[in-house]
């Protein structure tokens, strides 16, 4: 018993030391959000502001349409999370539990779509969305998620593959159809994984920088993360405002992370009740 306590202590110390570099940029961001513009330019840089400048936050609200940006971000992140959870679990189930001719070929193709750099397909994709009449709308930024995200399909597939085939066989004997096997066995068993998919999709969408700038033509239609780039120009970045905006933008993500984490960790108990 003593030995395991020692191991826990060592683990704690290691994790604690590792946490220092991890939290630095966050502290930097919050501290810069309270600096005056000229304090952000001091050299060598000061980690902490000389005087706390709360006005960065109030002025930010009058400078930029930050409420619109938040609403857009929330809308896109929620839609993408729903879209990706639903579509990726369906598709991953198809790839794991069922056998069909082109399965291996199609799965390899799925992986290939992840390998092509975005830069290579950006122009043709823009032409396509323009053809749909989707430019300067939010559609290009959420509709595709309902048709599966390769990365998340792959992720869910890895977990579905660990679910024993004996469950499927037993369910078949009981007369269950594929749909029932999917939502009565696979979904409950992979609860932590699906929460993770939702969380990561939400955050990836929240932080997606380039897409909104390319597909939308007006600052007010932007998301919070890409909108903040309108505070930085060719010559000068208003880093105090940008960091104040970034601090506000990160808060919902932190809250969501803490909630989702609880679900992920308690996942095993929930599924215990089902078996």
């Amino acid at each position: 018993m003593k030995k395991s306590k020692l191991i826990t202590l060592i683990a704690f110390v290691i994790i604690l030391i590792g946490a220092i570099p991890m939290i630095l940029p966050f502290v930097w961001m919050v501290s810069t959000s309270f600096k005056s513009l000229s304090d952000t330019m001091v050299f060598p840089p000061d980690f902490f502001p000389k005087t706390i400048r709360w006005e960065n936050y109030t002025e930010l609200f009058s400078l930029v349409p930050i409420k619109d940006w938040f609403l857009n971000s929330i809308f896109l992140s929620v839609m993408n999370s729903i879209g990706v959870i639903v579509s990726s679990s369906l598709v991953a189930f198809g790839f794991v539990a069922l056998n069909f001719k082109l399965k291996d070929f199609l799965f390899t193709l799925l992986l290939v779509t992840m390998m092509i750099p975005f830069e290579a397909v950006m122009i043709p994709q823009y032409i396509l969305f323009n053809f749909f009449g989707w430019i300067n709308t939010l559609y290009p930024l959420w509709v595709p998620s309902f048709f599966g995200a390769a990365y998340m399909i792959f992720f869910v597939r890895q977990f579905f593959k660990t679910i024993s085939t004996s469950y499927i066989d037993a369910a078949k004997v009981d007369g269950a159809n594929y749909w029932q096997i999917f939502y009565k066995i696979f979904i409950p068993l992979s609860y932590p994984v699906l929460v993770t998919v939702g969380l990561l999709t939400f955050i990836n969408t929240w932080n997606y920088f380039l897409g909104p700038l390319i597909y939308l033509n007006t600052p007010s239609k932007m998301t919070i993360v890409s909108g903040l780039s309108f505070l930085s120009g060719q010559a000068l970045g208003y880093w105090n405002y940008i960091m104040a905006g970034s601090t506000l933008a990160i808060l919902p993500v932190i809250v969501l992370f803490l909630i989702a984490q609880k679900w992920i960790i308690s996942g095993i108990e929930l599924q215990g009740g089902i078996k």
Partner: peptide, 22 residues
Amino acid sequence: GLFGYIFISPWIIGLLVFTIGP
């Protein structure tokens, strides 16, 4: 086999509509 294609159809449709062309 048919059910397999039905389950992966969202991705197949997305592939045909959004991805293959580009």
